[in-house]
Design a protein around this nucleic acid. Structure first.
Lengths: 203, 203
DNA sequence: TCGTCAAACTTTAGCTCTGAAATCTTCTGG
DNA sequence: CCAGAAGATTTCAGAGCTAAAGTTTGACGA
């Protein structure tokens, strides 16, 4: 067959007089099944089952990322800022770290870290002060506001994630968890140093 | 407990005289279990099972992305270029599309598309020519080289993905596929327009 | 005490990628 | 033949990042 594979969203082929919102940089996307079928057509040796799993997993992950970004937009912070908040929160009370330490945890250069902190100080998410006991060092400390933003992001994420897994039973969740863990173990064994640049956006 | 949660990679706390490669922008990362434990400590109402699933899924996806990027680097192309190759291949023979059409499919503005194509023309991945039957239009066509690069990327990805699912049986794969599909359906129902900007990097 | 060195952060310069808006070219319809 | 629309490109500007240079501070030996 030669499936012309209809796109998920409108096909602007027929003369639709209704001038809808002009293309605002939103990608057109196939359904998983169509996508896999197209791959099969152009690369016949592909394993459809494997391909479907990989495609679905990546798409779920990407959609989650979009959803998180929206939630953060509501809170008025960017995902870059969220990463810093998370690193500080996870470091535990009193929620203080040096710029260099933060840079290592986030996989950034110190220069990038400086700029990111600059912004966050003006937004009252963190404070920056010299360590008086060793004035070479600088201490970045989470503000009350910053901690509140992080907590609120977690609340929103929890609601969203529960919704996401709504029709998956507890037993199925356990099975899913185990299967994903096995995949992660495999990937970590075969690619020990494949740490992504974007450290744990979720949740 | 107050698990000080050891980092996956060296903790540069103790005076290690051996000056190893200076930190080159590689993030430090916790194991999934530690990460979830830290979240629980700071946000006690989190559901550990849900959190584990979400974290693992996202981490698998991210690691896959890193692996793909490496493979593309071997081929000498970027993931941005790969997206264009994929769109052209998937469009089917004769592998031609206009810049505007490509821009829509990838979720870019026409301006960004023009620049990306510029680069790809000089790298002999695509050709650009005027449509003689309608000289307003431009036709971007995949070159033999471009198609070969895409096919080779698929071969590498297939090997990697098979390895990834190595110790998951066929029955388990079917179950996994179904569970992921259910998650995707949920997310698409609750967030109908949450199409990610990075259209299907994988594979 | 002083000079030199190293550590930690910041600043500067430059790069890539992108979007918005203006511009150019070509086709279409009256 | 001309006005206007469609499609692509050019120009300009902004966000982020890296590398490298610069600054401040502390450590240590002569």
């Amino acid at each position: 067959m030669h499936a012309r594979a209809t796109l998920v969203r409108m096909t602007t082929d027929k003369p639709s007089p209704a001038a809808e919102k002009p293309p605002r940089a939103t990608p057109l996307e196939f359904g998983i099944a169509e996508q896999v079928a197209l791959y099969q057509r152009e690369f016949p040796t592909v394993d459809p089952q494997v391909e479907t799993i990989v495609q679905t997993l990546n798409r779920v992950s990407r959609r989650m990322g979009v959803a998180y970004d929206r939630q953060l937009t509501v809170l008025g912070i960017t995902s870059a800022e969220w990463e810093v908040l998370k690193a500080l929160v996870v470091s535990g009370s009193p929620y203080r770290l040096g710029p260099g330490d933060l840079a290592k945890r986030l996989g950034l250069t110190p220069a990038a870290m400086t700029h990111r902190i600059d912004r966050m100080v003006t937004e009252d998410l963190v404070t920056r002060e010299r360590d008086e006991s060793n004035r070479v060092r600088v201490i970045i400390e989470l503000t009350e506001n910053g901690r509140d933003k992080w907590l609120e992001s977690m609340r929103m994420a929890a609601v969203f994630e529960e919704e996401l897994l709504q029709d998956i039973s507890s037993e199925e969740r356990a099975a899913l968890s185990g299967l994903l863990a096995r995949m992660l173990r495999r990937i970590e064994e075969s690619q020990p140093d494949a740490l992504g640049r974007t450290a744990d956006l979720a949740p």
